[in-house]
Design a protein around this nucleic acid. Structure first.
Lengths: 156, 156
DNA sequence: CCGGTGAGTAGGAAATCCGAACTCACCCTA
DNA sequence: TAGGGTGAGTTCGGATTTCCTACTCACCGG
């Protein structure tokens, strides 16, 4: 009867349960770009329409998107990010930078993000307390739940 | 015959094609924590063994993990992150912070990461050029590929 | 009236996922 | 040397999801 199957409790897993399904983060990308209409999403993402409808419902339920009417008669909608959705944008930026660096030759980046400072955005994840860029060797994990120790947080 | 179905070219999509499948990022989490053995992964992630085997193959092929033998006779292996894998860790940290903030009540975080500076790690994504924290309103997207304009990069 | 657009639904085939059981090679120990 | 245990998977059939195409429904514009 004992639950021998529950995995490590973890906010990464919880977050992925919401936005980790296929296309979900691409929906967020398009919505952050301002392309929030159903047919735009279908075209830009390349997802089947029914799957997209399912994802949109889920993201709205989760409070990551809102569905706004921009035209009554004919009824037309637009999806937009909520505050919570916008706060996921850094994840997208970091992922994009990783993809640009590791998945592409040289400078054939399909999209460049410009920061308000005038330069191209190259996202760097830093520690809020000291401001330094986060490096694996500088981290130590402290599980808060008994029974979920880690063997060695850092392993070069 | 024309390809009317290709979605927006994008490094986010490319990155997700590699690490966006179910469990892939959780594998990376465990491996970064130092838990790189097959049965540990099965337990900590809660994935079916065959799916896990498939994911591991894919991540190794993609150069995100390496499979190291830590014991000949009996043959025993351990998966470890490569440099490319380690560079995905910031994505995990950012995602974890988002989950902690939006998916949990107060302070029941299942895991706390300590930075070498002595404080708890709260990851902040910043612009490499100016050092400021990245906010949606400060970004402008510039697609590099004709035909993939965005309607409005910023839309509050 | 005709064709077009936006926002989906419907239906069945194809691909994935899942859990449990199985293998195989080895070690321990009695 | 027989029995049990562990690590690292593979194999199985069945349950779920995804995918694709077509369809709807409401409206608009000419």
């Amino acid at each position: 009867m004992a639950a021998t199957k529950d995995p490590r409790p973890c906010s990464i897993a919880d977050a992925l349960a919401l936005v980790g399904e296929k296309y979900s983060l691409l929906v967020l990308r398009e919505v952050c770009l301002g392309n929030g209409r159903f047919d735009q999403l279908v075209r830009n993402i390349g997802a089947p329409r029914d799957i997209l409808a399912t994802r949109l419902r889920r993201l709205v339920d989760a409070g990551i998107l809102t569905k706004r009417t921009y035209s009554e008669r004919p009824q037309r909608f637009e999806y937009r990010p909520t505050q919570a959705g916008l706060e996921l944008e850094p994840v997208l930026m970091t992922l994009m930078a990783w993809g640009d660096r590791h998945l592409r030759k040289d400078d054939d980046r399909p999209m460049v993000i410009e920061h308000i400072c005038g330069n191209e955005l190259i996202p760097v994840v830093t520690c809020r307390a000291c401001g330094d860029a986060v490096r694996h060797e500088d981290l130590t994990a402290h599980p808060q739940v008994p029974g979920w120790a880690v063997t060695g947080p850092t392993a070069a």
